[in-house]
Amino acid sequence: MGLVARHTEAAGIPTLCMTSALDITRAVNPPRAAFLDFPLGHTTGKPHEPDLQRRILAEALSSFETMTAPGSMKELPFRWSEDEEWKAKAFAEGDERTPRHDTPQYQDEEDRRRAEEGGSPSCPVCRT
């Protein structure tokens, strides 16, 4: 995502990258980044905690007004859990990723049916 940030920023639009992978983001070196030390798949918060999600984003977005130099990174003051046990399990040995199928991977069969029927009439962007 840092590559997208650099491209968009070079076109004159300020960007902010959220990240939960500090070393990867530091290497790509986007203009502005906000680091949230949460397990991957939770870059903008914990599920069903709207107040926490709001605090995380407000804190991150304020970087647009406070950062003054390219390559700035803000470490957000939130922890997933006191014991941080998730870190031991993060990226365990082996490849747990799903095989790289080249056909659409629907969340459920109803989605497949709707998409194959050409999108619901209430969804003007279903073709995009």
Binding site: T44, P47, H48, P50, Q53, R54, R97, T98, Q105, Q107
Partner: peptide, 27 residues
Amino acid sequence: RATHFAYDLSDARTDPNVVFPIDTLRR
């Protein structure tokens, strides 16, 4: 909906705001 080969989708599928903060931004 959420679909991805590389991360655990269980939370994103019950609350997409964890990776797509739509309700948070509207708020």
